[in-house]
């Protein structure tokens, strides 16, 4: 066991954990932010996606010892009130069904739009294919990302 200070959603948390503990379980069970989900544990489904210094990473496969001092953003850090353009677009397109994968989907979508504010369908497929949805919300996700892209670019004009 060792002590780690984590910067999550602009807040500092000190946790006591085995160095090999995946960041996912520290976020969920030590820090108590359960919006980030466990889906596979081998970086194949994307349910655990968080941002590390703005880049999407799979927290299930990242030992807590490897992220010390870096900025972590989880779904809870995206906005206070579901007001992020991607969250708004998700509601407008009524994307989630069971919703379990959607935190990860939204974190991947935000990272995509940060890098590429005007993605094509192919860009979206490439960026989002690491996130599995068993309810089959893919067509709505694609539509929502386009809508969010429009709102972001209209907002910045």
């Amino acid at each position: 066991m060792a002590k780690y200070t984590l910067k999550i959603n602009q807040q500092e948390f000190t946790v006591d954990a085995d160095p090999q503990t995946p960041l996912l379980w520290v976020i969920r069970d030590e820090v108590g932010l359960t919006g980030t989900k466990y889906g596979c544990g081998i970086a194949q489904c994307g349910a655990c996606t968080v941002h590390l210094n703005g880049t999407p990473v799979r927290s299930c496969s990242l030992p807590v010892s490897a992220i010390s001092g870096q900025q972590v953003t989880t779904i809870e850090g995206v906005s206070e009130d579901q007001s992020h353009p991607v969250q708004k677009a998700w509601i407008e397109a009524q994307v989630p069904q069971c919703g379990y994968c959607q935190s990860g989907q939204i974190m991947s979508a935000i990272a995509l739009l940060d890098k590429n504010p005007k993605p094509t369908d192919d860009d979206i497929d490439t960026a989002m294919s690491g996130n599995i949805c068993r309810c089959g919300t893919y067509t709505r996700i694609r539509k929502a990302i386009h809508n969010a892209s429009n709102e972001i670019s209209n907002g910045s004009n």
Binding site: G35, Y38, V78, Q82, I91
Partner: peptide, 13 residues
């Protein structure tokens, strides 16, 4: 859905 886009919906997990 508001809870499901913000990580607030409580699943068994």
């Amino acid at each position: 859905l508001e809870m499901k886009v913000s990580g607030q919906a409580d699943y068994g997990m």
